[in-house]
Design a protein around this nucleic acid. Structure first.
Lengths: 117, 117
DNA sequence: CGATAATGATACGGACCCGTAACGATCGGG
DNA sequence: CCCGATCGTTACGGGTCCGTATCATTATCG
């Protein structure tokens, strides 16, 4: 079920969605933060700092700081793992789920509006 | 020629491309910077600081700083407009064009790999 | 126990970015 | 000519992020 898209379409889609994100005054997330957020919301729990760091190929402090920021924005929450208290389990929030959902709708909508070529 | 894509597909595509960008050690551009870069490379020249600021709905210093950063990365160049020396014309570079092209191919490739649902 | 390993958080110096405000340079009309 | 308008840049104070190194806490295993 491959999704066929031409390079020029891909670029216009990419640009338009980013323009929308900037325009809507959403949090100006970096590529890293976006990757972290979507990983948390798309991959199966549980998510740990170490696991996310491995998946992204970055150091642990990067994840910790990103979680700090997203926590302030209400996009994720952290909780101690009671079975292994060294671990921290990253949890989703309603606000985060809504933000992800809004992003999905944005991409779908802008893709639908793409002209040929 | 609408491009049909489901929300879950959109999210997986978005996540995977961002993961690739992080992994490939590309510059960790923010949403704003990405929007600026793609606007320069997709919209017809000439591009000015003021024009970009209007299109993105941000202040001029934001554009100036983004151009500083992308200039260091070799993605864009600036030149004085000789007809109206108040203006600065933003120009594309070979490196920038290659980076944009690579992004396009990345999106196309990851879209092709998307499963259904 | 005690030693070792593993996890996530923190400290540090440096870099970048933000928004507001001010600035120098340039144009253009009276 | 000069004065206002316009352009892009810079200054400022505050915030975030980076990578490296180190830390406290907790688990594991001899």
């Amino acid at each position: 079920m491959a999704l066929e898209i031409r390079p020029s379409q891909a670029l216009r889609l990419w640009r338009q969605v980013h323009l929308d994100l900037v325009h809507d005054g959403q949090a100006d997330l970096s590529a890293r933060q976006t990757a972290i957020l979507l990983t948390i919301y798309l991959e199966l729990p549980p998510h740990t700092v170490r696991g996310l760091a491995q998946q992204l190929g970055v150091t642990k402090p990067v994840i910790t700081r990103a979680l700090d920021t997203m926590g302030k924005l209400g996009l994720v929450t952290r909780r101690r793992d009671e079975f292994d208290r060294r671990n921290v389990v990253i949890q989703r929030t309603v606000a985060g789920a809504l933000a992800v959902e809004r992003l999905a709708d944005l991409v779908v909508q802008r893709a639908r509006e793409l002209g040929p070529g």
